[in-house]
Amino acid sequence: MKDFKSKIEEHKKRFEKALSGVKDEKSLQEVRNAFMSRKRGELKLLFEELKTLKPEEKAAFGQMVNDLKIHIQEKIRVRGELKVIKKESAALKASSGKIDLTLPGQKEYWGSPHPILLFQQEIENIFMAMGYFIEDGPEIETDYYNFEALNFPPYHPARDDWDTLYITDDLLLRTHTSPVQIRAMEKRKPPIRIITPGKVYRRETPDPTHLPMFYQVEGLVVDEGITFAHLKGTLEHFLKTLFYEKIKIRFRPSFFPFTEPSAEIDIECTVCAGKNEECRVCGGSGWIEILGSGMVDPQVLKNVNIDPEKYSGFAFGLGIDRTAMSAFQIPDMRFFYENDLRFIRQFTLK
């Protein structure tokens, strides 16, 4: 009986000695195998031996062997977790013997969203808070959706302002996201409140303010009793939220084939606020053109079988790239598509 007890003690001592010799993960694993292996581990052998004892001894020693098992398991577990601290402190303690807590913490690398899409999302959020849904549609469009349904007859000179990239006589790269509005009006009944962000294309040679592809957000509201006053209120709210509460905004008459009356919206120059006659951003006028808008042309409503006597609506559109340029004072539109990580990653901090 005594024999068995001292045997347990011996095992325990051997374990302590082996554990103290552990230097790395590998030697820890060796200790684990030696003592805890299910086939030939020391504990396994002890349990085997236990089976040969008399029943009354079994009960007493069984408890002791079990305690040893728990002890060994626990020690190995703790030793395993200590590993990391050991490794680091070894490096750190080289001189002072104490961990230098002024060292920087652990950093994770998070990817950054592209600034255009980040800005697009800000715009979307403002409109979603006003009850708008987001719609999208094809980038390769037919002449009908891009022009005719929007009240641009064939050979109308207004088409010159939307210089177009063509694929066939009938297929083209959409020059605005307005076709998405037409498709939305075809598929649903008023009330309609949507915004349509996306890529648009124009036949433009790249320069600091023009690109053959850029991003646009357009919006459309159609319901009973929608007025020009609603257009003004909505866009004022949008611009004050996107820029700042006190920003000056002006609405002036303009022309778009798909709206009547039409309005262009300027904001005061975000760089000079009209105080610099040589300002590069506003050209000294003090104003930046930011949005085109208007009341949906009755012909456009008729084209999608909405009765213009019963319903009215407004629509608007803005270039995301250009608006982001104003908001962040970015001088060149091409920066957005160079995809320089030093440019893109700045916006994570915004």
Partner: peptide, 11 residues
């Protein structure tokens, strides 16, 4: 979260 940065290229 997986550490990828987003880019936008011309079509």
């Amino acid at each position: 979260c997986n550490g990828f940065d987003e880019v936008l290229n011309f079509s």
